[in-house]
């Protein structure tokens, strides 16, 4: 796992989460900018996942490769899923969906780092 990239993703996700929760509190539907920001975050996460997958082929694999792969799939799918749901929900709750997605993402990245750090044998 790339440390700098992971940290940047976590920080970006938390900042966006604060923004989306504020927008929810102000009773605003996701604006074009809100949706684009989530899209950019999703692209960022995709890069993180691709780098992590590449790392599986030229380095020490995590002991729990299966779980690691499962978390990678969940991680890459989370933001796009939240984005689709938010697009279907043009109310304040759309922003809450994006906010929750951005709060779950750091947990997934932290778990990925935990699993990646255990490379026995």
């Amino acid at each position: 796992m790339n440390g700098a990239l992971s940290t940047a993703t976590i920080v970006a996700a938390l900042l966006l989460a604060a923004w989306y929760l504020l927008r929810t509190a102000l009773d605003r539907a996701p604006s074009r900018l809100d949706l684009i920001a989530a899209g950019v975050l999703g692209a960022f996460v995709a890069v993180l996942v691709v780098v992590a997958v590449a790392g599986l082929f030229d380095g020490s694999r995590p002991t729990d490769t299966g779980t690691f792969a499962g978390y990678l799939i969940t991680t890459i799918g989370l933001v796009p899923t939240a984005l689709i749901l938010a697009k279907m929900e043009p109310t304040r709750w759309g922003n809450l969906i994006l906010g929750i997605g951005c709060l779950v993402l750091p947990v997934l990245v932290l778990r990925l780092q935990q699993i990646a750090s255990v490379t026995g044998a």
Partner: peptide, 12 residues
């Protein structure tokens, strides 16, 4: 829809 869609994400 509405909060239901938020719940959908969390339950998912």
């Amino acid at each position: 829809s509405g909060i239901g869609r938020v719940l959908l994400l969390v339950y998912g």
